[in-house]
């Protein structure tokens, strides 16, 4: 009880702020829940580090200059690398992005800026359905369409198309979500100046959402870059360098798969190495995107 000095008031005998039992119970409850979600967060993040650490430990022995520059050698021969798969993956991803990014971006912009009412609902639902289709089913579809008929054989372009199909729904959803985050007042401000709607979208809305859009694109490309099942059915893989999109082309996931299912310990190490390279390629792409949008909001 504090001294009230010359004040004409007396201090109350019990502080009105004294903690009671219910307060203590609430406090304990709060701490307990905070602890639980902290553990959940740690578990979530540690999974990433466990995978990364294990891949590095197992894959590092396979990494050397030859691994990046040589083509795979038959079992029994020492050395060799996965260079055709690296160039193949980059080529297939680039072509897939060339197809998937414009379509996904356009569709996302349509949903956020132009679509109205039930049309939006239908498109969004279909896009979600495509996102939910197992990637091997996408592979079977493209195999039936392109490998069996239009192109006539296993080919890089068929792989790119199947990866584009996997990318599109991811791009659509992230682009739509990011554009809807742009405050409506910005569009209003531009429209009230007599700026045509298409110009508002291109010059005001898209620049405001640039960072988020690029993040979405990178996510989609990274996701597609790791797909194996559709590539097995479409590009088949290739032990030799090939830039011909109408022929089978190597890809890191396929090479990884082939190494992993073989009975040779040396190839298993190379599979881990391929996994490490795959993760690194995706990590580099993500970092580049981050740097490109450095310092921008979101």
């Amino acid at each position: 009880m504090a001294d009230t000095g010359t004040l004409p008031y007396k201090a109350s005998p019990v502080s009105p702020l004294a903690p009671d039992r219910r307060y203590l119970a609430r406090k304990f409850h709060g701490r307990f829940m905070a602890g639980l979600i902290t553990v959940a967060a740690l578990v979530g993040v540690s999974v990433l580090w466990l995978i990364l650490g294990y891949v590095i430990v197992r894959g590092a022995p396979a990494i050397n200059l030859d691994f990046f520059t040589q083509r795979p050698l038959p079992y029994g021969e020492v050395g060799g690398g996965i260079a055709p798969s690296i160039t193949g993956t980059l080529l297939i991803l680039a072509v897939a992005a060339l197809i998937g990014v414009p379509v996904g971006l356009g569709c996302g912009i349509y949903l956020a800026e132009y679509g109205r009412g039930s049309v939006v609902e239908v498109i969004r639902f279909c896009s979600d359905l495509v996102a939910g289709v197992p990637s091997i089913v996408v592979g079977v579809f493209v195999w039936a369409l392109l490998v069996r008929h239009v192109v006539g054989n296993f080919s890089g372009i068929a792989g790119a198309v199947s990866l584009a199909i996997i990318m599109i729904p991811i791009i659509v959803r992230t682009v739509e979500a990011v554009l809807l985050l742009v405050p409506y007042t910005l569009r209003e401000a531009a429209l009230a100046l007599g700026v045509p709607k298409w110009r508002v979208v291109i010059s005001v809305v898209l620049p405001s959402a640039k960072a988020g859009i690029i993040t979405g694109l990178v996510l989609a490309i990274a996701r597609a870059g790791g797909e194996t099942a559709p590539l097995l059915l479409t590009t088949l893989g290739n032990q030799f360098f090939s830039w011909n999109l109408l022929e089978p082309i190597g890809a890191i996931p396929i090479q990884l798969y082939n190494y992993a299912v073989a009975p040779y310990p040396d190839w298993h190490t190379k599979a881990w190495g391929a996994a490490l390279v795959l993760i690194s390629v995706i990590g580099v792409l993500s970092t580049l995107a981050r740097v490109a949008t450095w310092g921008q909001s979101r």
């Binding site: 007042t185 209003e188 401000a189 429209l191 009230a192 100046l193 007599g194 700026v195 045509p196 709607k197």
Partner: peptide, 13 residues
């Protein structure tokens, strides 16, 4: 669009 070029608007916020 043409109307808004001639009749400008300032908003609440």
């Amino acid at each position: 669009v043409q109307v808004r070029r001639y009749i400008g608007m300032v908003f609440q916020r």
